[in-house]
Amino acid sequence: MYGILGESQSDVNTLRVFVRRIADNDLLSIKAKGYEGCAEMLRKGARQLDLFADLGCSRFIVCYDSDGADPATRRKKVEDEIVKKSSSAHPCCVVVPVQELEAWLLADIECATNIFSSWKPAPILNPEAIPSPKEHLEKLSRANNRRPRYAHSTHNERMAKYIDLQKVHQACPSIRPLFQFVLGT
């Protein structure tokens, strides 16, 4: 069973979908905890990993957006504040999306048509270069005063169901550790 931590409930719900799709197993057991921001996650994450272990989780994933900072620094922060402070010795994958997790969704933005039938967005070649992918995604959905509009808290996990995983893997190097961890490669 997996235990996933993220900065928000939306992030962990989306990651849950990705993990199951990468593992090609809709029934994969996953426990997830989304916080109200990175500070809370860093403060409480170690305790949560211990709880996940007590509940039977044996593989952990922690996702921390880089938000423009150096991803390596972010990774080390998670390892120091969460992984090392947890008493669990189970394997843990730290995933640091460049900017935000929404960059992964921008890698195959065309699949938004599955959710919003009247929205046919053009492909985005380099999603990890977009400074605020969440804002960009929501702004794109507002073009032409279209409704309903994209709301990340609801639609991120919906999009994740339709995303072409190969496209994301190719366009977003930051997701590759997640693939490697889930596939055991």
């Binding site: 426990k31 905890k33 305790r47 211990d50 709880l51 996940f52």
Partner: peptide, 15 residues
């Protein structure tokens, strides 16, 4: 165990 480490029941129940 969780609540002994100052975790809350509501956080636990979410898990």
């Amino acid at each position: 165990h969780f609540m002994n480490k100052d975790g809350t029941l509501s956080d636990f129940l979410e898990s």
